[in-house]
């Protein structure tokens, strides 16, 4: 009895702690359920309803929203065909998001390495510089890019002044403009996790590799990259996922003709007045992001181990 008493106390204390943890977690769980799962259920329901004449939905079951994601029927002869418009927008979104991630990695890796190899006292200063773009609103930064690349803007003016071109290059309203905007905006999201994992890198390992006559490329491939892989994975996810759903950047720099998925979805809720299709497209995007994440995380976990 005298022996079991403290044990029971321990069990009770443990239980109380578990309960307290759940109680502490409860507010955030409730908020998550209400703010994320609730609207998601509404979106799922809407995707199976009929579109109203002037927007909104009519409470009448229909597959039209989902059929509309991948197929289109000609309004004049009624023939059903693959929705070329949607597929080309889908492809543009995936392509641009992939390229954005790639360029962010190419630019972000040396940047993070540079900062991580500075003396400890200087690193914070360099990191501060990386976060400066966050001090200004995304919209304003995007408009600033517009000022740089427009036909009579700074970039074209400079190239013409240097005599490299005699007509302005059309940069605005192209895929290039969107890519430039996204790489610029999302680059810090790549640098920050890369830096975090590089900071923990044991640099004596690199010295050891050199002592064993490894070439610089081999050091990069066999020592640095495996060590900072968690940073690469985190950075790529942080860049790829928001790129896929980008809205403001393609809206401003793409000029309304180079739609990405985010803009296509907005179109359905606005002028096109097809909420069920918009809802189905949103869910398609959600599935794409989830699949991409699972594939990417699995692939990077398997390889190298």
């Amino acid at each position: 009895m005298a022996v079991t008493q403290p044990n029971t106390d321990l069990v009770i204390a443990n239980r109380r702690e578990t309960r307290n943890r759940w109680l502490l977690l409860l507010p955030s769980i409730v908020i998550l359920l209400a703010a994320a799962v609730g609207p998601l259920i509404v979106v799922v329901i809407y995707s199976f309803l009929t579109a109203g004449d002037y927007g909104g939905v009519v409470w009448h079951f229909s597959w039209d929203g989902w059929l509309g994601v991948f197929t289109t029927s000609d309004p004049f002869d009624g023939t059903l065909s693959l929705a070329n418009a949607h597929i080309s927008i889908l492809w543009r979104s995936v392509k641009l998001s992939f390229l954005t991630t790639l360029f962010c990695l190419i630019l972000g890796f040396p940047t993070a390495y540079f900062i991580a190899t500075r003396p400890v006292t200087q690193r914070d200063g360099w990191m501060l510089l990386i976060t400066i773009p966050f001090w200004t609103n995304l919209l304003i930064r995007t408009f600033a890019i517009m000022g740089l690349i427009r036909n009579e803007g700074l970039a074209n003016g400079l190239l013409e002044w240097l005599g490299i071109i005699d007509h302005p290059i059309q940069m605005m309203f192209t895929d290039f403009a969107i890519l430039l905007g996204m790489v610029y905006v999302y680059l810090p999201l790549m640098v920050l996790p890369l830096y975090a994992s590089m900071e923990r890198l044991n640099f004596s390992l690199i010295d050891a590799a050199y002592d064993l006559y490894a070439t610089p490329f081999r050091v990069l491939r066999r020592v640095i990259v495996p060590a900072v892989k968690p940073g690469v994975v985190a950075g790529s996810i942080l860049v790829f996922v928001p790129s896929l759903g980008a809205y403001v950047i393609p809206r401003i720099l793409g000029g309304g003709t180079q739609l990405m998925l985010g803009n296509l979805i907005e179109l359905q809720f606005g002028q096109a007045r097809n909420w069920p299709l918009g809802a189905a497209l949103s869910l398609t995007l959600l599935v794409m992001v989830t699949v991409a994440l699972i594939v990417y995380v699995r692939a990077s976990a398997n390889e190298g181990d």
Binding site: R150, N151, E152, G255, G256, T257
Partner: peptide
């Protein structure tokens, strides 16, 4: 033949975009 389908054309026309 169209480069864009956008609002806010006052500036863009004036600036030569």
């Amino acid at each position: 033949n169209w480069v864009s389908m956008d609002y806010g054309t006052v500036e863009q026309l004036a600036q030569g975009d």
